[in-house]
């Protein structure tokens, strides 16, 4: 059996994403314990200089015009072809907006098992176990991974991104794109970056963040007042932004912004993995939630099991509101 690990590197406009380094880091740890190596597959167009910076043992570089922007069909075909060709033990794919299009499709086509939402991949009693985070972060599923092929899709932020450059330096191998890339049914037509916002939550020192527990748009006023009293800005979980109660620029999390304030006061936020991705590194996290099992308490430094309105009002009184 092959023992090497194939990592799908993720890049956007020539920039490698942090999660790619996290995946290569964990892959190198796993491969080293088996005396094997790590292949990183870099997909793009005109990205050969980027390929040279990837800290894998071997960088497989595939360039094609269809790979310039992310194209889910092209990426899927490319990864599938490379996996068939190199027959790795494990394929690691980031569980990002891009990776989600690829991991399940490639695993299905190859007939290999997939463990999604991996937050840990560890040896336990001589057995490799991938731990998947399910049910909004409330339940973990331990899945033993044998010596057969498997695909793991890995949560961003679950591993350290300090993968050191390998010794000896990586070899770069240029791959010929599969013929399917010339007959795709999906076209990427554009990429749009957000406009500058009125408030940049990524620079705020203090954040009062509200979730679905706030119940209505009118109740946002309470959060605004509290934030004013604390000298903080208001941010939110995704459902509030989807409902149009706050602009997209206030969304914290996987598809929103990553924040690292000195204070993150979370009111009525459950702490789904996609939310935690954006705020778990805050210096001080204080969470108020009615549900004692809410996953937000797994990352908070201080927790309060209470009605957020009671706590917010009591705080507001003391702040002289």
């Amino acid at each position: 059996m092959a023992e090497h690990i194939l990592v799908l590197a993720e890049q956007l406009e020539g920039q490698l994403t942090d999660v790619t380094l996290e995946l290569i880091g964990v892959a190198r740890r796993l491969a080293a314990s088996r005396g094997s190596g790590v292949d990183a597959l870099v997909l793009g167009d005109g990205v050969s200089s980027l390929a040279a910076t990837v800290p894998a043992d071997r960088t497989l570089l595939m360039e094609h015009p269809a790979l310039r922007l992310f194209n889910p069909e092209a990426a899927q075909r490319a990864l599938e072809a490379v996996a068939r060709e190199t027959s790795p033990w494990l394929v690691l794919v980031p569980n990002t907006s891009l990776g989600m299009d690829v991991a399940a499709a490639v695993a299905t086509r190859l007939g290999w098992p997939l463990v999604a939402y991996c937050q840990a991949i560890e040896e336990r009693d001589g057995q490799l176990v991938a731990t998947s985070q399910l049910f909004g972060g409330k339940i973990l599923a331990d899945c033993p991974v044998g010596t057969d092929h498997a695909v793991l899709s890995v949560l961003a932020g679950a591993f350290s991104s300090e993968a050191a450059a390998p010794e000896p330096p990586a070899r770069i191998e240029r791959l010929t794109p599969p013929a399917e890339l010339d007959a795709l049914r999906v076209r990427a037509t554009g990429l749009e970056r957000p406009e500058a916002a009125d408030v940049d939550i990524t620079r705020a020192e203090k954040i009062v963040a509200v979730g679905r527990g706030i119940e209505s748009k009118d109740n946002l006023e309470l959060a605004e007042e509290l934030a004013e009293g604390l000298g903080a800005v208001v941010a939110a979980s995704r459902p509030l932004v989807d409902a149009g109660w706050l602009p997209r620029s206030r969304q914290v999390g996987k598809s929103g912004l990553k924040v690292k304030p000195r204070l993150y006061l979370a009111l009525g936020i459950s702490g789904a993995p996609e939310h935690l991705e954006g705020m778990r590194d805050a210096e001080l996290i204080i969470a108020v939630n009615k549900d004692p099992k809410a996953p937000i308490f797994d990352v908070a430094h201080y927790g309060v099991v209470a009605d957020l309105f009671d706590v917010a009002e009591a705080l507001q009184e003391r702040l002289g509101g």
Binding site: T96, S97, L191, E192, P194, S249, K254, S255, G256, L257
Partner: peptide, 8 residues
Amino acid sequence: LWGGIMLD
């Protein structure tokens, strides 16, 4: 994608 970036 992330950070408010949209792909068409």
